[in-house]
Design a binder for these strands. Sequence first.
DNA 1: ATCGTAGGCGCC
DNA 2: AAAGGGCGCCTACGAT
Length: 587
Amino acid sequence: MGPTAANRPELAVRWLADRSIGRGDDTGVALRPGIGIALAVANETLALGSDDPGEVLELIRAIEVEIQPRWVWWDRSTADPIARGAIEIARCWDVLTVHRLLHGGWRTSIPIVWAWLHGLSIDSLPAMGQLDLLGAHGDEGDDPENPVRPDRHLRPEWSSGGWGDSPQRLGRWATLALEASQLQRRLLDERPDPGRAHSTARSESAAEFLCAELTLEGLPVDEGEAVRIIADAVGPRPTDEADAERLRARRDAEVLGHLGPGPGVDLRNPADVKAMLRRVAVDVPDTRAWRLEQHRNDHPIVEALLTWRKAERIATTYGYRWLDEHVHGGRLRGEWTSSDGAAGRMTASAGLHNLPAEMRPAVVAETGHVFVRADLGQIEPRVLAAVSGDEALIAATQDDDLYQPIATRLRVERDIAKVAVLGAMYGSTTGESANALRGLERNYPTAMGHLEQAAAAGRAGDDVFTVGGRRVRMWFDDSIDGDIDRARRVAAARGRFARNATIQGAAAEFFKVWAIIVRARAAALDARIVLCLHDELIVHSPRANAEQAAEMLHEALAEAAYRWSPSRDVRYIADVSVIERWSQAKG
DNA sequence: ATCGTAGGCGCC
DNA sequence: AAAGGGCGCCTACGAT
């Protein structure tokens, strides 16, 4: 006779306490709504069946309140239901997220992680189709209830979902997650700065859980306002396909009307557009907006084309279809991931990270609420100062505008200094900033040396590492076909990529530490993070708590700097404002 | 038909 | 000022 539903949360708490699990100690967990939940500690598991998802969440909540362990799970399949239960998990370890940190890249899966951690070849990964070849008549000891096959790979029918078929399986799955995390800890120990690497693994895991919450939470959007903006750009919602076609043709005609007789032009085909421009004596290598900008006065069709492109963007990407697909109940929702495949920035779909400025008036706080918005000032050069330890650059970070002291030192205009610093971090070497770049090399040799070292590694095809220990893979274009020019271009591109990745990646790590501190503190103010945008946070807060939230954002930044910054002396700044709609942000 | 790629553009 | 880095998403197009 099992425990009754009512006392199971207490039972689970006691079970952990009896095994000396306390605050911050690892506890493996796997859950499947409708099936149950399992906890795993060093050598034991507690598997509880339950068809009541509410009961399972109650159990987690009780453990979180009483013990606050570090929850160790494989991936979002366990994190998502916990986030749906609105449980404020404080500490976690997401095996897939830590794998991305250790291995680099984004594409991965549980069987790949398992194989990699055990030194098994990815080529020998079993596919779903062949599962019975061994299973039915296979060797002795090939037990389908054992998730690990005799060849030490994970059983594909488990990793593709079978892990949640029974409480017993959940128990084994939670145990494996715990095992995987222990192997990951050993690999983190081998990083040049193990303490920092472990810290990054924890903060990146927390950021992944934040992403699970962001996916559910959504960004408040006033749908009526959004419709007004869209209608303004591309007209009213088309009634049917024919109407849509008619509106499209009308937009096209605004541009094509500038042309004399000749062959038909498809404005959506760049080659066609290029040929069209040549007909009016505008010769460009490509038709990108910044290039057309310089020919704005050469022929009226250029202006018309640029306007057409803006409207086309709204019509195709941020139009009625986007609204119908991604905005529901006044919230814009997309999928969030805590690290991209390159340097580790957060990503979001549904346009959350690239909403055009014209659409931002539609992002409005709900009744009784405001947005407390904060963005980090000049974060990348400040991070460069921190990771390189360049004393002169660290000194410059004391200024609110760090480009000013740099300009003074280089004896150039402030904007020239800015371009030079950005160019150094992005790998630009040409143009007017080239002189200033040499000035940077003389005056900030440590910082510039740091960038050059990363670039050299990239050019050689070597992976680079962020200060937090993330491996950044030089994955692209390794085909060698004897084309010297092409090889040189690829090497140069890798150099630029590596140069930027160490800074962009470190800034992403710092940003995430800031974000998870804000997340943890926002709860007490009844506030929630609703958007993370590389150096910007938007917190949706009850109006009454806005001032406290604004202050909290500054305090969280100080704490993030304390926790993350490799240099104690670098100054980080944030601009914080309380606004009702996103467009009120001073850019 | 379905897929991947390229050109383009939005944001940081 | 130059056209350097990242992402997601659109369309057209060519290969399969």
